[in-house]
Structure formats: structure tokens, C-alpha cells
């Protein structure tokens, strides 16, 4: 086994006061097998950009050894120190929800680590949309309705943003995709290295950037909404029926976006009523049953 060739390594404490349990190591260099298996967030970036990224995310780093030959791909990874496992991006325990005393779903429990995609399946009315809205914090949980943890912190206190795509796109029909995305990114920020133009291009809306949404088809509106999700600087995506209204090409697009997001250390929860089968490596599935007969 070749010895690891780290360019940068340092350990930094993030946010939490109890730094013991939340120490992260930060590596830039070519990957090696032992670290790959332990790494949590793996961002494949080139050497120069890795440093910029590290600076931008406010991490301290230290050059240990001269970097690999210029031009080779480096791996920037934030790795938790081997002592304890990191808290999952989102975890729910004993979660249940009822509306006007009518149980909608639950109790259920699951945890989603970085790099995972969870597909929530179920018939119409099984509570998929409600689950996603609860996870997004849009619906208030009653007492004794279980808990939602975001990276180990109760969701209500969590400072971590997330991206949410509901049945409605959240975009204004009077505005063009570009104008809509400008608002979305001013509201929630822009992912480092992303741009509105590139996001619109990658969802296949080139040529429609400045057409008012009113004149776009349902599928194109969906693509515009996906571009908004894509450019958000968040780790967790909650997408309600991302495949709805999309053509075959669009399905492939969604799969690819999800895979890319998972590969750079994100996680996503998506719903589907079972007609589409996402072709995503290592996708996890959660089946929801109807409560009322």
C-alpha cells in the first residue's frame, strides 16, 4: 500500500463547543484507500481550488508536504477523527404526525448520512408530502410527536439551511428563470463555485433563461426549480416528486444531479409514488403505508 500523500492536513473544531466529539480533519491530496473508506465529505477538486475552498469555508489548514505534481487531481476531504462517528445530516426518531387528530404517518425512524439518497415511496395519500414538509420545518410537530435532529442538533435550533422543492415550484410565473434564480440565490446564498447561468445550463434551459416562466412548459418549470436547488449552498435536499412532469431525459438529469450531490457530500430525500425507479447507485428506500383504510 502506498503511503498517503497529503498536501494539507489539519484538525479543526466546527461550531460545537464539545469539540471532542466533533473534530474534523481536513485533507487535501491524492486519495488513498484507508482514508477513502473513512472520509465523509469528499470533494473532488483541483489543488488550487481546494485551498480556496478551504479558505472560504473558514477552515484552518497547514501545508505539510509539497503538493503532488501540478495538474493532477487532488482530493479534498473533511474527515472526522476516528474517535466517534459523526452525527447524520438528518435523523428522525419516533416521528409521527397527525392533522386534526387524524394520524397521517408514523411512528418512523431513519437517519441519513452524507452521501446518501433516500427514496420515500408510497401510494397517494400515504403522507410522503407531509413527511417532507415536516422535515423541512414547514409543519409544526405536536407534543410527543418524536424528534428531528439535524447534524445532532434539534431541527428547531439548527442553523443549517436546506433546500426544499414542493409540488409548487416556488417560482414566480411573471419572471424569467434567471430572475427567479437571482431571487432564490439572494435569499439563500449561492453554492461556492456555482453560478445561475451554469445551473440553468446544466438543467437544459439554455435559450429559455429570459423567457417568462408563464410561457414555459410544466417540465421546463420543474427544471428551473431544480436549477434553484442545484445552486443552493446546502447539504440536504428535500425534493417532493422531482420526477413529476419530466420527460425521459429529465429523469436521467435528476438522477445525475442527485448522484453528483451525493458524491460531493450532500444528501437528499426524494419522494415518488412508485411509477419511476431512480437509477442511482446505493439509493435507500423507505416505504410509507396508508394509515386510514
Amino acid at each position: 500500500m502506498t503511503p498517503p500523500r497529503y498536501a494539507v492536513a489539519s484538525s479543526v473544531g466546527l461550531r460545537q463547543k464539545t469539540s471532542q466529539s466533533r473534530r474534523w480533519c481536513f485533507f487535501v491530496g491524492t486519495s488513498d484507500k484507508t482514508n477513502e473508506s473513512q472520509s465523509l465529505l469528499t470533494l473532488r477538486v483541483h489543488g488550487r481550488r481546494a485551498f480556496r475552498l478551504a479558505r472560504m469555508s473558514g477552515l484552518k489548514y497547514r501545508r505539510l508536504k509539497p503538493s503532488a505534481e501540478p495538474g493532477t487531481t487532488s482530493v479534498l476531504s473533511m474527515r472526522q477523527s476516528p474517535r466517534t462517528a459523526p452525527p447524520p445530516l438528518i435523523e428522525v426518531r419516533q416521528l409521527c404526525f397527525s392533522r386534526s387528530d387524524e394520524p397521517i404517518f408514523g411512528p418512523m425512524a431513519f437517519a441519513l448520512e452524507a452521501g446518501e439518497v433516500l427514496l420515500v415511496e408510497g401510494a397517494n395519500g400515504s403522507g410522503k408530502t407531509t413527511l417532507l414538509r415536516v422535515l423541512a420545518g414547514l409543519l409544526e410537530l405536536g407534543e410527543d410527536a418524536g424528534e428531528i435532529l439535524r447534524e445532532g442538533v434539534a431541527a428547531a435550533e439548527s442553523q443549517q439551511a436546506l433546500a426544499f422543492l414542493g409540488h409548487a415550484s416556488g417560482l414566480k410565473l411573471d419572471l424569467s428563470p434567471r430572475e427567479n434564480l437571482r431571487f432564490t440565490t439572494r435569499l439563500g446564498g449561492l453554492r461556492a463555485g456555482a453560478s445561475i447561468h451554469a445551473a440553468l445550463l446544466s438543467v437544459g434551459l439554455d435559450g429559455f433563461e429570459d423567457t417568462p416562466m408563464r410561457y414555459l412548459s410544466a417540465g421546463q418549470r420543474k427544471r428551473a426549480a431544480l436549477a434553484g436547488i442545484l445552486s443552493a449552498p446546502v447539504a440536504l435536499w428535500l425534493l417532493d416528486e422531482p420526477y413529476a412532469n419530466l420527460d425521459q431525459e429529465g429523469h436521467v438529469l435528476v438522477d445525475r444531479l442527485l448522484e453528483t450531490h451525493a458524491a460531493r457530500g450532500g444528501a437528499a430525500i426524494i419522494t415518488s409514488h412508485g411509477m419511476t425507479s431512480p437509477a442511482i447507485r446505493g439509493i435507500r428506500r423507505l416505504r410509507m403505508e396508508c394509515h386510514h383504510e
Partner: peptide, 17 residues
């Protein structure tokens, strides 16, 4: 009403602002 219907209220609410 328009913000509730087109989902942009949801976007504002999840945005941490």
C-alpha cells in the same frame, strides 16, 4: 395568496431568514 400558492412562501420559510 400568490406566495402561498406558488410555494415561494415555503422557500422563504426554509431559508433561515
Amino acid at each position: 395568496r400568490s406566495d402561498v400558492e406558488d410555494g415561494s412562501l415555503d422557500a422563504m420559510r426554509v431559508s433561515q431568514q
